[in-house]
């Protein structure tokens, strides 16, 4: 309820922010704060320094960069969800953003912040994986790019180094459709995902030439399930083909039971939502 004491700094540039992180082991980046502050209030996390990147110019944009779109570190969930660029080129991410938290959370929390937090039951994590996104990290040594599929390492652990900031996520254009769907903790699509799946497909001439499905909520981390996509390639995307491919939805996943689902149930849901996401992705 009441965080421990900490120092606060709100640098004006990414370089300054990175410099603070590099100099102070106990420093932690805050964008919207929707993941960080609750942990600090419960004193489960007590950074020595908060580096508020909220005053750095230029991070609050969604840009069309020709072959990809880029979402800056300060873009709120609500902005991701409402963006025409995202809705056209990355509908799975727009849908996942619209199903993240509630209105107030979406107004304050950021897409990149949610990704960097790497919660196992978050929504947009699965979407960026399925969309084949690239994460751009800024650190003392400059920028580096990390494939979304490699970004989520473990529960609440991303590939970011402690002195790196996720400044941007880049989503390639292309493909014929993408979608995200989930079962929420209170049923329906509300709240964190009990299980969710994002799908991206490319079906240029009646035959699927590429497909990616990522799952969230069911295991130790959100992840790409290669076997689903592989099973779809070469098919026509019929309900039967989708059902057969979705059977692979837990391959390689380390399932994790929680209050909302046993491993058996989560494995089942992964297949259900893989199929639903694929069906929706192929629907448009």
């Amino acid at each position: 309820m009441y965080p421990r004491k900490f120092d606060y700094t709100a640098p004006q540039t990414i370089a300054d922010a990175v410099a603070v992180l590099a100099a102070d082991e106990g420093a932690k980046v805050m964008a919207g704060g929707m993941s960080l502050l609750p942990l600090m209030k419960m004193r489960l996390l007590s950074p020595a320094t908060i580096v508020d990147i909220g005053r750095i110019d230029g991070l609050d944009r969604i840009e069309d960069r020709g072959d990809h779109i880029a979402i800056g570190a300060l873009v709120r969930h609500a902005e991701t969800a409402a963006s025409d660029l995202v809705r056209v080129h990355a509908p799975a991410l727009a849908q996942a953003a619209s199903l993240t938290g509630d209105v107030q959370v979406r107004n304050k929390g950021t897409t990149c912040g949610s990704l960097a937090h790497a919660d196992i039951a978050a929504d947009q994590t699965a979407a960026v994986i399925a969309l084949g996104a690239t994460m751009v990290a800024n650190g003392p040594g400059g920028t580096r790019e990390i494939a979304a599929a490699d970004f989520f390492v473990d529960t609440l652990t991303s590939a970011l180094a402690p002195d790196e900031i996720l400044t941007e996520v880049r989503i390639p254009k292309g493909g014929s459709g993408s979608a995200y769907d989930k079962l929420g903790r209170r049923g329906g699509r509300s709240d964190y995902a009990v299980a969710g799946a994002a799908a991206w497909v490319d079906k240029p001439n009646g035959t699927i030439t590429a497909a990616r499905v990522a799952v969230t909520g069911i295991g130790t981390k959100p992840m790409l399930v290669d076997a689903v996509g592989a099973a779809l390639v070469g098919t026509d995307g019929s309900p039967e083909a989708i059902a057969a491919a979705a059977e692979h939805a837990t391959e390689g996943v380390t399932l994790l039971e929680d209050l909302y689902g046993s491993e058996e149930y989560k494995a089942h849901l992964a297949k259900v939502y893989a199929a639903r996401a694929l069906t929706a992705a192929l629907g448009d």
Binding site: M30, G33, D52, Q104, V105, N107, K108
Partner: peptide
């Protein structure tokens, strides 16, 4: 604790005053 900050509804319990 919902208030409107710069036109958007937010939860003021998850918002540093300094921010």
């Amino acid at each position: 604790c919902t208030v409107i900050v710069d036109g958007r509804s937010v939860k003021s319990c998850t918002y540093l005053a300094v921010a």
